[in-house]
Amino acid sequence: MNAAPSRLPVTVLTGFLGAGKTTLLNHLLRESGGRYAVIVNEYGEIGIDGELVVGAEEEVLELNNGCICCKVRGDLIRVVSGLLKRRGRFDGILIETTGLADPAPVVQSFMADDEIRQQARVDGVVCVVDACHFLTGLERSREAGVQLAHASLVVINKAELADEAVVAQVEREIARLNPGATVLRSARGAVPAAALLDQGAYELPRLELPAAPAAARARYVPVPQGRHTDGLACVSLVLQRPLERGRFLAWLQRLVTERGEKLLRTKGIVALAGADRRFVFQGVHMMVDSDFDRPWRTEETRDSRLVFIGHGLDDSELRAGLDACQVSPA
Rank of each mutant, 00 (worst) to 15 (best):
T14D: 04
L17Q: 05
G18Q: 05
A19N: 03
A19D: 06
A19C: 09
K21L: 11
L24M: 12
L28I: 10
L29E: 14
R30D: 15
R30N: 12
R30I: 00
S32E: 06
S32H: 09
A37R: 07
I39E: 04
I39Y: 00
V40L: 05
N41R: 02
Y43S: 08
G44S: 12
E45H: 04
G47R: 04
G47K: 04
D49H: 00
E51T: 11
E51C: 00
V53D: 11
V53S: 11
V54C: 05
V54G: 01
G55Y: 11
A56C: 08
A56S: 15
A56T: 12
E57M: 04
E57C: 05
E57D: 14
E58S: 13
V60A: 06
E62C: 04
E62A: 13
L63Y: 08
N64C: 13
G66K: 01
C67M: 07
C69A: 07
C69D: 11
C70T: 10
C70E: 09
K71N: 11
V72H: 02
G74N: 14
G74D: 14
D75N: 07
L76D: 05
I77A: 15
I77Y: 08
I77M: 10
R78T: 15
V80N: 06
S81L: 12
G82V: 14
K85I: 06
R86I: 09
R89K: 15
F90D: 08
D91S: 08
D91F: 05
G92S: 02
G92F: 03
G92H: 03
L94E: 07
I95K: 00
T97Y: 03
T97F: 00
T98R: 03
T98E: 06
L100W: 05
D102V: 03
D102L: 08
D102P: 05
A104N: 06
A104W: 04
P105H: 07
V106D: 01
V107H: 01
V107Q: 02
Q108I: 11
Q108N: 10
Q108T: 12
M111A: 14
M111E: 11
A112G: 04
A112V: 13
D113N: 15
D114A: 11
E115K: 08
I116Q: 14
I116K: 02
Q118D: 11
Q118E: 15
Q119W: 07
D123N: 03
D123I: 03
D123K: 02
G124V: 06
V125M: 05
V126T: 13
C127W: 01
V128G: 01
D130G: 04
A131R: 01
A131V: 09
C132S: 13
C132T: 09
H133P: 00
F134P: 11
F134A: 10
F134C: 07
T136H: 14
G137E: 12
G137A: 06
L138R: 09
R140N: 13
R140F: 13
S141D: 11
E143C: 02
V146R: 15
